[in-house]
């Protein structure tokens, strides 16, 4: 039972992810992207950071590296895959998940805690929460504005593929509570299958009791549940 946390040149949330997974009893190890996915991989985290210096577009280079073929194959076999922040940008750039994350409406890098509403509690990533529950999650990104064409977004919403939306403390989805101008306040979305997901907020940064609230643990529980299932 080992979750692979993929390290690209420029990844910087890889160790945080391993530590956070250890906190909830999930064995994880950092895998250098050139080494490919180990055969015994039971889950994949594409962590945050600035892979390839965000050259061209955030996530564009990493999305086209050979290990992503391994990730695609693992996803097709039912292995849970989670892209966080830069990992979310990589997930969308590699078409594991729909849409794109681009420059924040503010044109600024934003590092702050936000509230997110659980839109669909019927996914491995949100099973630990109730639908409509409000969780506190940290964001740290310059390119987190979710973009997708309107028809596609309608489909995603109809198919219940929105994981989280940015909201205020009470759970109201408003323009003021949308930190980056994401379309329909989308903070996270699933792939064709619910066991593949990406999100801009960082659950691994809000998992260790030593450093404050632990609202993010529920997302990472998916990796433990996948093995127990």
């Amino acid at each position: 039972m080992t979750v692979a946390v993929i390290r690209f040149g420029g990844s910087n949330c890889d160790r945080d992810a391993v530590r956070a997974l250890a906190e909830i009893g999930v064995d994880a190890e950092i895998v250098w992207h050139e080494d490919g996915l180990p055969a015994d991989t039971t889950g994949v985290v594409i962590p945050g950071g600035f892979s390839y210096g965000d050259y061209l577009r955030a996530g564009a280079m990493a999305a086209r590296s050979p290990i992503m073929d391994d990730v695609r194959a693992a996803a097709e076999d039912g292995t849970p895959v989670l892209g966080i922040c830069n990992g979310a940008q990589i997930g969308c750039e590699s078409s594991l998940t729909p849409g794109a994350f681009t420059t924040n409406a503010s044109a600024r890098f934003q590092c702050e805690h936000v509230h997110c509403r659980v839109e669909n509690a019927d996914t491995p990533w949100t099973a630990a929460y109730d639908e409509g529950e409000v969780v506190e999650l940290p964001i740290a990104h310059g390119e987190g504005r979710y973009e997708v064409d309107d028809d596609r977004l309608d489909e995603l919403e109809a198919d219940d593929r929105i994981l989280f939306r940015y909201c205020d403390e009470e759970g109201n989805v408003t323009p003021e509570a949308n930190p980056n101008g994401s379309k329909h306040s989308v903070a996270g979305v699933t792939g064709e299958s619910a066991h593949v997901a990406v999100m801009m907020p960082h659950p691994e940064r809000i998992t260790l009791p030593d450093v404050g609230p632990t609202d993010g643990q529920g997302v990472l529980r998916a990796f433990a549940d996948a093995v127990e299932a």
């Binding site: 061209l56 577009r57 564009a60 086209r64 969308c92 750039e93 729909p98 849409g99 794109a100 681009t102 973009e147 997708v148 064409d149």
Partner: peptide
């Protein structure tokens, strides 16, 4: 198609 542009945006 494959790298320079992202067809979504």
């Amino acid at each position: 198609e494959r790298l320079l542009a992202n067809p979504t945006i």
